[in-house]
Design a binder for these strands. Structure first.
Lengths: 211, 211
DNA sequence: TTTACTTTCAAACATGTGTTTGATACAGTT
DNA sequence: AACTGTATCAAACACATGTTTGAAAGTAAA
């Protein structure tokens, strides 16, 4: 995930530290709940630093967003020399790892999840830069599997069905933890989840294709 | 959905007005974002009323939660004289109506969705009183369809797959609105969604059962 | 070194928050 | 009518928030 603190000047370093800290705090609390003071405390910067470098708390959030990992995932998938079903399996595997692996930089996903629940102006940016391309990507992939018999509206609902299953494990994590306290999102569990979603969804898709 | 303002004494009426207003405001903002002053303004009560009648903002939230509609839905479904597949279809239809119909009292669902994103002590109550029974209900229903060949863990993932699809339309509503501004959750659309989830999921379940 | 500019800092500002207070109005009982 | 416990109210309290300010420290070119 690479931290950003490798810049040059002292000013650039504080900027980078602020961005790192902001990603952490925005991932832990929603926009309203995250405080500038907490971010600055973790970045070891003065409270005024956020407004000096980013204009406002909102400006900081906008710059803290980073979708490069998500874009890379899609690019690698498109370039992979595999059949559509296999690419769906690969995508769900990589996507769920990104979504659930705690050691990884899923901070971006967490921030996005919080924006869904309580939108700020940043959601427009997230939708146009990250979610819309992602939905288009999966739509095209499903179209390769499903053929031309299925309407555009039905295809879209299949995309929703898949992302819905994926996001459930992130959104409902607080609930699942209470229902099954032993639950841990380790590598093995994540792969089992991805495999389940793949099988479940492929069956659903095929059924709709031949109906 | 029946408002609660039909009580006896003046004190009970303000209590009821406060609860109604609280459900509205908690549904619109998350717990932190909802302000006592806004609730009291809508209830046409004094700011001190919340603490007088409910002890605190948290106490108000705890009393504002109400899962009777959800429980009634399950009870009716269990008592229905239909085959399991048909009961799944009925459940998803009713559940999605409850989840998405804006005219209906989906305020409870909205509050629950907000608690998922940013848990407060009320989430424990929500999980034990509403979500755990709901998951158990759907688990039993799926077991009737899927038979005994599938492990408990796989069955649970099927439950997750279904609820994931359902919740997606609520959680991601802000996103879907931006992606497809013409989208409206009218009765017809909700029924189409429920039908899609039913077909998609039944295919997924059957596939896992015979694997 | 001097100068001009950028960056940091402690403090203050303005506002919004949940909660408390003490007085006042109201209800029902005697 | 007088009394008593309850409910309402405006005001204040205590605290947290994002942001601004003006001075101090730092930086780099002349």
């Amino acid at each position: 995930m690479m931290s950003e603190v490798e810049a040059k000047t002292a000013s650039e370093q504080t900027r980078a530290r602020l961005l790192d800290a902001a990603r952490e705090v925005f991932a832990e609390h929603n926009f309203q709940g995250a405080t500038v003071r907490e971010i600055c405390r973790r970045a070891e910067a003065n409270v005024a630093a956020v407004n000096y470098h980013f204009g406002s708390k909102e400006g900081l959030l906008a710059e803290a967003l980073n979708f490069s990992q998500l874009a890379a995932l899609q690019k690698a998938n498109v370039q992979a020399d595999e059949c559509p079903k296999m690419r769906l399996r690969m995508f769900l595997h990589d996507f769920m790892l990104m979504l659930l692996d705690e050691k990884n930089a899923s901070t971006q996903c967490r921030i996005m999840a919080r924006e869904l629940a309580d939108p700020t102006p940043a959601l427009d940016q997230i939708v146009s830069e990250a979610i819309a391309p992602l939905h288009e990507f999966l739509g095209k992939l499903l179209r390769e599997i499903i053929g031309d018999k299925v309407s555009e509206a039905e295809l879209r609902r299949c995309v929703y069905s898949i992302f819905g299953q994926c996001q459930f494990y992130r959104h409902s994590h607080p609930v699942l933890q209470r229902l099954h306290p032993k639950l841990r999102y380790d590598h093995k569990e994540i792969e089992a989840i991805a495999e389940h979603i793949t099988e479940f969804s492929l069956a659903g898709i095929k059924h709709l294709a031949k109906k």
